[in-house]
Design a protein around this nucleic acid. Structure first.
Length: 504
RNA sequence: GGGCCCGUAGCUCAAUGGUUAGAGCUGACCGCUCAUAACGGUUAGGUUGCAGGUUCGAGUCCUGCCGGGCCUACCA
C-alpha cells in the first residue's frame, strides 16, 4: 500500500460568496494533492464549510429563514466553486454534518475529562460583528459617544457565563513541540510570529457562548454552544473518522498538512494543537500559512476600492487551467502577491499558450504532416540526449523538490526553462529544413520532442490538468505505432476584454 | 511602545561575505517560417532606499535614518 498523505484546506465561513482568496487556497491545496498522487501517494484531501456562529444565525434571521437552510444554500456555493475549479477533494465536510457534531462533542468531553475545561464568567465589550471581546482600553469613541471596537464596529457590554479552556497550561508544551519540529509551522516567518505570541504568555480561552444557539451544543450544558473555532478546527479529525477510529483514521491521521491563510495561523498553530494535546490526539505534522492575494499595485482588495477579483468571473472568461496556472505561477507561495487580469492574460499567453502549448502543437503538427502521423523514436545524438536530460531534470527533480516545500512558482519556473530549451532545440534543429535534406534525422528530432513533451505535460498536470490531459491524450493515440490525430491547441491564447471607457 | 520582515533594471523577482549584481516580462534590433502572428538569438536598462561602520573584499554583516508591510502590547 502506498504512503498516505492527508491534506486539508481551512473550511470557509460561508457568510458571503466565495472570493479569489478561497479559490487560491483551494487551488494550491489541489495542486499539492494532485502532485502527491502523481508521486504515487495515497491522498486524502479535505475541504468544506464552517457553518455555525452568530453571524450565520443573524444573516438567516434577516432573511427570515432557518440558519440550517441558509447554511445549506451558502455551503453549496463553495462546493460549486470547488467543483468548477476541478478541486479533487475526497470529502467536502460541513460542520453541520451529524458526524462532525458528534466529533466536536467528543473532543469536548475528552478535554473536560482532562480537567482542562472550567465554567467561568466572561464580561466585557463584545462586538457582534467581530465575534470578539475587547478590553476597555482598545475601544475608540465613535459618533455620538458610541463605543467602537478597533475595527470600528459597535460593541456592547456583555456578561456571559462561559466555559474556559486552560490554554495557559500549554504554552511550554507548545514551545517544546515547535522547537522539536521545525516543519510544524511554515514558512519560518510564521513560526517566529507564533513562537513570540506564545512566549508572551497564553491566557485561558473562552470556548462556549450562551448568547446564541446556532452551534454545537456543549455536552451537559444545554444553554451553551461551542466556540466556533473549537467546533471548526475539529473538522480536520472528523473528516478522517474521529472519534470512531477505523481504517481511515489509522491511515491518515495525523494529517500531513493543514493549509491555511496567514491570518488564521494562530488558531491552527496554537489553539488547535493545544486542544489536541488536551484530548490526547496526535498533532498534525504541518501547518502552512500561505500569503494573501492583493490587487494591482499591491493594494489590498476591497469592495470599496472596486479592485476585487471575482474567481467565478475569471473562470468564465479564461478557464480553469489559466486561472490555476496564473495563481500558482505569479505569486511566490507563502508571500503576499498582487494579481490582475492583465497579468493573468500576459502570463498565461506567454508561458502556457505560446511557450508550451505551441511547442506541443508545432511538434504534433509536424509529426502529423511529415511522419504519416506516426510518432518516431527519439534520437540518440548528443543534442537529443542533452535535451531529454534537461527535461527530465526539470520534471523529475527540480519541480518536485520545489513543490515539496510548497514553492509552486519556483517549480513552475524550472519547468518553464525546460520548455524554453525545447523551443531553442526546435529552432536549432530546424526539422522543416531536414525534411528535404535528411528526413531520417527529421524524424529523430521530432521523436525527441515528442519524448520531451510527455514528461512536461505530466509535470504541469497538477497545475493545469485539462490542457495537460489533452496533450497526453493526443500522444497516447500514437502509442504502439498508431497514427495520431490532427492536433488541436491544448492551451489557447487568451484575450483581455476591451477596456471600458474611463472618461465620464 | 516591543518584535519581525522587506526596499536590487520601467515591472515581477534571484544572488552560502568572494570574478564583471543575474533571470523573466516589457522595449529595440536580427534570424526563422514547423506552429496558437507563435519560436530562437542579440541588445538596452543599476549610485542594490539614504548615510556611516566592520572587512583584503558588503546587495549580503553592524549602527542610524527614510519608506513599506506584518505580528503584538499598551497609554491617553
Amino acid at each position: 500500500m502506498s504512503q498516505p498523505y492527508y491534506l486539508s484546506t481551512a473550511i470557509s465561513y460561508p457568510n458571503g460568496a466565495p472570493h479569489i482568496g478561497h479559490a487560491y487556497e483551494a487551488i494550491a491545496a489541489d495542486v499539492m494533492a494532485r502532485f502527491r498522487r502523481s508521486q504515487g501517494r495515497d491522498v486524502f484531501f479535505l475541504t468544506g464549510t464552517d457553518e455555525h456562529g452568530l453571524k450565520m444565525a443573524q444573516a438567516a434571521r434577516e432573511k427570515g429563514i432557518e440558519p440550517a437552510e441558509l447554511a445549506h444554500e451558502m455551503s453549496q456555493m463553495f462546493k460549486d466553486m470547488c467543483d468548477n475549479l476541478d478541486i479533487t477533494y475526497d470529502r467536502f465536510i460541513r460542520t453541520t454534518d451529524p458526524d462532525h457534531v458528534k466529533a466536536a462533542q467528543t473532543i469536548w468531553k475528552k478535554m473536560e475529562d482532562k480537567g482542562d475545561l472550567y465554567l467561568g464568567r466572561y464580561e466585557g465589550w463584545y462586538s457582534v460583528r467581530d465575534e470578539a471581546f475587547y478590553d476597555e482600553s482598545e475601544l475608540t469613541e465613535g459618533e455620538g459617544g458610541a463605543k467602537l471596537s478597533p475595527q470600528g464596529t459597535p460593541v456592547e457590554w456583555t456578561v456571559e457565563e462561559s466555559w474556559f479552556f486552560r490554554l495557559s497550561n500549554y504554552g511550554e508544551k507548545l514551545l517544546d513541540h515547535i522547537a522539536a519540529n521545525p516543519a510544524f509551522i511554515q514558512p519560518d516567518s510564521r513560526r517566529n510570529e507564533v513562537v513570540r505570541f506564545i512566549e508572551g504568555g497564553l491566557k485561558d480561552l473562552s470556548v462556549s457562548r450562551t448568547s446564541f444557539d446556532w452551534g454545537v451544543p456543549v455536552p451537559g450544558s444545554p444553554d451553551h454552544v461551542m466556540y466556533v473555532w473549537l467546533d471548526a478546527l475539529t473538522n480536520y479529525i472528523t473528516g478522517v473518522g474521529y472519534p470512531e477510529g477505523g481504517d481511515k483514521w489509522e491511515r491518515y491521521w495525523p494529517a500531513d498538512a493543514h493549509l491555511v491563510g496567514k491570518d488564521i495561523v494562530r488558531f491552527h498553530a496554537v489553539y488547535w494543537p493545544a486542544f489536541l494535546m488536551s484530548a490526547d490526539v496526535e498533532l498534525p505534522k504541518q501547518v502552512y500559512g500561505h500569503g494573501h492575494l492583493l490587487g494591482e499595485g499591491g493594494i489590498k482588495m476591497s469592495k470599496s476600492l472596486g479592485n476585487v477579483v471575482d474567481p467565478r468571473e475569471m473562470l468564465g472568461r479564461y478557464g480553469v487551467d489559466a486561472l490555476r496556472y496564473f495563481l500558482m505561477r505569479e505569486v511566490p507561495f507563502g508571500q503576499d502577491g498582487s494579481v490582475s487580469e492583465e497579468a493573468l492574460v500576459t502570463r498565461v499567453n506567454a508561458e502556457l499558450a505560446n511557450s508550451f502549448g505551441n511547442l506541443a502543437q508545432r511538434t504534433l503538427s509536424m509529426i502529423h504532416k511529415n511522419c504519416d502521423a506516426i510518432i518516431p523514436e527519439a534520437g540518440k545524438a548528443s543534442e537529443d540526449r542533452k535535451l531529454l536530460d534537461d527535461v527530465m531534470a526539470a520534471c523529475d527533480e527540480k519541480l518536485p523538490a520545489a513543490f515539496d516545500r510548497w514553492a509552486f512558482s519556483t517549480g513552475i519556473e524550472a519547468w518553464l526553462s525546460a520548455v524554453h530549451a525545447c523551443n531553442a532545440y526546435v529552432d536549432a534543429m530546424a526539422p522543416w529544413g531536414l525534411k528535404k535534406t535528411d528526413p531520417a534525422r527529421m524524424a529523430e528530432v521530432l521523436g525527441t520532442l515528442a519524448a520531451a513533451i510527455a514528461p512536461l505535460a505530466r509535470a504541469i498536470a497538477p497545475v493545469s490538468p485539462h490542457g495537460s490531459a489533452a496533450i497526453l491524450d493526443q500522444l497516447a493515440k500514437g502509442e504502439e505505432g498508431n497514427p495520431i490525430e490532427k492536433p488541436t491547441p491544448a492551451f489557447p491564447r487568451l484575450e483581455l476584454p476591451a477596456k471600458e471607457e474611463k472618461c465620464a
